[in-house]
Computed example of a mutant assay.
Amino acid sequence: MALASQKDFFSGLMFTAVGGAFAWGATTYEVGEGARMGPGYFPLMLGILLVILGIIVTFNSFKAGPPGGDRIGAFAWRPLGFVLGANLAFGALLVGLPALGIPAMGFIVSIYALVLIASMARKGSSLKESLILATLLAIGSYGAFVYLLNLQFPVWPAFLSN
């Protein structure tokens, strides 16, 4: 039986492995039952569903098609680096890293940094559209987390709050 899609095959294996690890990790918590769910019930069920999805995707990768078709391309290092770097910068700016001399810059500045750094993952990204997106995300996030959910964390840098 020839492999029709390398992408689907390896995606299915990844789903199966991650779902299995997730479900196995959930068993360290009390699972309970459907009527009386414990803290491990939802992660266990989610892991099992991910394993089932992974098995289905893996088997579908052998369906009819050209042998070795739908190959996996080159690894996209640029998007990976910028997206991971954007998330790390968001966390570092939100809470600050005093050991490295980075003060807490607050929620709004962290969101702008997140969007601007992550936008560099795409070649030809526009600063104007990134600033518009960052503004919309900052307004929406402020409305959702600070105004509606009433979460308590610094919104602005400490030197602007005083």
Rank of each mutant, 00 (worst) to 15 (best):
A89P: 09
A89S: 12
A92T: 12
G47F: 11
A144I: 13
G140S: 01
N150L: 12
V109C: 09
L137R: 06
L149S: 02
S61E: 06
I132N: 03
L49S: 06
A92S: 14
L114E: 08
V115K: 05
I52G: 02
N87S: 13
G69I: 00
R71H: 05
N60P: 01
P98F: 01
N87H: 11
G81T: 09
L49M: 13
K63I: 10
G91I: 05
G54R: 00
Y112W: 13
T58H: 08
L80I: 12
V115R: 10
G96A: 01
G65E: 00
F75V: 08
G101N: 13
P66C: 02
T135F: 14
K123M: 09
L53Y: 08
P66A: 09
A64L: 07
V109R: 04
Y112E: 04
V95P: 03
V83L: 11
L100T: 08
A76N: 06
S119W: 07
L80F: 14
I55R: 02
F145N: 02
F75M: 02
N150V: 06
I52W: 05
Y112N: 03
K63N: 11
M45Y: 01
P43G: 00
A104H: 10
K128W: 13
A121D: 10
G91C: 11
L80E: 05
S130V: 09
M105G: 07
L46V: 14
R122A: 14
L46I: 06
V83Q: 04
I72A: 02
V95A: 10
L127V: 14
S119M: 12
Y147F: 14
L50E: 02
F90A: 06
A121N: 03
L80W: 12
A118P: 09
A134T: 07
V109S: 15
V115G: 12
F82E: 05
N87W: 13
G73C: 00
A113D: 14
G101R: 13
T58N: 04
G73P: 04
